[in-house]
Design a protein around this nucleic acid. Structure first.
Lengths: 125, 125
DNA sequence: GTAACCACTATACTTTTGTATATCGGTATC
DNA sequence: GATACCGATATACAAAAGTATAGTGGTTAC
C-alpha cells in the first residue's frame, strides 16, 4: 500500500484525521517549542546559548520544553564528558524533517496575509 | 520578486521566520479549532450541527472559537433571513487552502511515528 | 576567596484556557 | 401551554500553562 492510499484511508474518517494532525500539533504546542526548534535549525546549541538567543525565555521553561522535545524524538541531548560537563542540543533527523512542515506553514501564512489584507484594512503599506 | 526568493528572504532571519510561522500556528491554537476546521472541510454546517459532531464541545467554546476563526479569515458566517433565522458556517477560500498545511502535518506525523516506534518500544503491533 | 560561568531545579505565584451549568429570546409542535 | 429546537450568552469555577525569583553544585579566572 502506497503512501497516498494510506493518506486517503486516514482522511476517510474526520475523527482519525484530526487525531493524527493533532499529534503533529502537539509537537510544537506551547509558547516556546517553535523558537527552540527555530534556533536549532541553524545547528547544535548549548543550554546557555539557547537561553541567550531566545528572548525572555526562563531557564525553567527552556529546560521543560527541551525535555518535552527530547521525549517526542525532535531534539537529542548529548552530554560531553569534559570538565566541566558540556551539554549540547540538536535536532534529530525527524526534527530536521519538521522544517518541511514549517515551510508550508510559512508559505500559507504569507499567502493568507495577502488574501486577508484589504478586507481588514488595518495596514496596507 | 518570485515566491521562492521572498521565502528565502524571510528565512534569512530566524526571528522573522519564527514570527511568520507563529501566525499560522495561532490560526489553529487551542483545543477546538482543528476539530471545527476538520468538520467544515466536509462542507458548510450550522451551529447545532457542529455542536453535535464535535464530541464534548460546549456551546460557549464553539461560539468563541467560531468568532476567533471568523476574525482570522478562516471561517465565514452567513445568516439566512428565514423564520427562525438559520446561521451557516463554512470555510473561506483561505480556510480551505489550509488543508494543504494539515495534509503536510498528517504526512509528517505518520512518518515521525514510524521513525520513533521501535526506539520507544511502547507498542509495535 | 570571591566573582562569574554552566546547566539546571525549586517554590510560589499569575495568567490563560477550558469546563460546568444555567439562561435567554424566538419559533414550532403537540 | 408544556416541551423542544435553534443560536447563542452569562457567571462561576477548575485546570493548565507560563512567570518571577532564588538557589544548587560544580568549575575556572583573577
Amino acid at each position: 500500500m502506497g503512501k497516498l492510499s494510506e493518506l486517503k484511508q486516514v482522511k476517510k474518517c474526520s475523527g482519525a484525521y484530526v487525531l493524527a494532525v493533532n499529534d503533529t500539533i502537539n509537537v510544537i504546542n506551547g509558547k516556546w517549542k517553535l523558537p527552540i526548534i527555530g534556533a536549532l535549525l541553524f545547528g547544535k546549541k548549548r543550554f546557555k546559548q539557547l537561553e541567550r538567543e531566545i528572548p525572555n525565555i526562563t531557564p525553567r521553561m527552556l529546560s521543560k520544553e527541551l525535555r518535552d522535545l527530547e521525549a517526542n524524538g525532535i531534539v537529542s541531548r548529548t552530554v560531553y564528558d569534559t570538565v566541566p560537563v558540556a551539554v549540547e542540543y540538536c535536532l534529530t533527523p525527524s526534527g530536521e524533517s519538521f522544517s518541511r512542515v514549517l515551510d508550508v506553514m510559512l508559505e500559507w501564512g504569507l499567502e493568507h496575509r495577502k488574501n486577508t489584507i484589504g478586507q481588514n484594512a488595518e495596514e496596507v503599506q
